[in-house]
Amino acid sequence: MKLTIIRTGGVPAPLTDQYPSYPEMFREMFEHDGAKFAYETVELDTGADLPDPGSLDAILITGSSFGVYDDVFWLDPLRDFIRTAHAARTKMVGICFGHQVIADALGGEVRKSEKGWGLGRHTYEIGCRPPFLDAPRASLSVACSHQDQVITPPEGAKVVLSSDFTPNAGLHYTNGTTLTFQPHPEFSDEYALELVKLRKGLAEDAVIEKAMASFAKPSDSPLLTRAISRFLKA
């Protein structure tokens, strides 16, 4: 199977010399899980053309510093691409911004949350349990970095992960071929911690302190990665 990664953003400038690109993070994530995918990357954020989604095996849309409400030249083409992929039942995964823009394209409501920054390792309760999600516990703790949220999911999308802070943190769509998550299983703890540090002065001090302390909790990113791998290969 070839996984087409749609890059919608990059590592912040202060960190680009220390950390791999987002597509590389996803490749490393799946390789650690033992998933045997071939990969191609579409650098949408720098003007690359989107392929025909009906011709693809599977799609993954990355995180981004942009929001669905921004005036970005590639956003409307991406929405059309998402709707076509969804209708064609092409396997599609979205992470963070990918989670948000898929919900936006398919009729949900996405906006900057009045709750502020979600930073550090958050714990999400598991809601519905599709066959590919066999985590042996009631919750998963995974790194996040966001202000925007899916406020109202599209009709028929089932909530897979939720928390008080992010009620719609994971969605599995009724067509069975679209799966999205707000947190970042591809982020290493080191990178996620650096993102928290970059938010100093933007997020409240108490939010920063809590986020930095949250990494003492073990990461469940491998369990979420396994669920995504199984979903893509099913």
Rank of each mutant, 00 (worst) to 15 (best):
G120K: 02
T178S: 12
E109A: 10
E125C: 10
Q182K: 11
T177E: 13
E155A: 13
R137E: 09
G108K: 15
E190N: 14
V150S: 06
Y124N: 04
E114W: 04
L179G: 01
S141G: 13
A169D: 05
H122A: 13
P154R: 13
F132R: 11
H184T: 01
R111P: 04
E125W: 03
S219D: 11
P153C: 08
W117M: 12
G120R: 05
S219W: 00
I151M: 14
D205S: 14
S188K: 02
E155L: 06
E125T: 15
R199W: 01
R111I: 04
L224T: 05
A206F: 10
P167S: 13
Q149Y: 01
L171M: 08
F215E: 04
S139I: 04
G176L: 09
T174A: 12
I151G: 03
F231P: 07
F132I: 08
P131K: 15
P183N: 11
E204L: 09
A135D: 04
L171A: 04
G170D: 08
S188Q: 04
L193H: 11
V196I: 15
L223D: 11
Y173S: 08
G118P: 00
D134S: 15
R121E: 01
M212N: 10
F187Q: 03
F165H: 14
H122T: 05
D189W: 00
F181G: 03
G116R: 11
L119W: 07
S214A: 03
S229D: 07
K210S: 14
A227V: 03
P153Q: 09
F165N: 04
V207T: 14
Y173E: 10
V160S: 07
F231Q: 13
P222V: 03
A203G: 09
S221N: 09
G156Y: 07
T174Y: 02
P183K: 11
H172P: 00
S162N: 14
K200S: 11
E155Q: 14
E186L: 10
A213Q: 15
Q149R: 13
E186D: 13
A213Y: 10
L133W: 06
P136W: 01
Q182N: 09
H184D: 00
V207A: 12
K210H: 03
G127C: 06
S229Y: 01
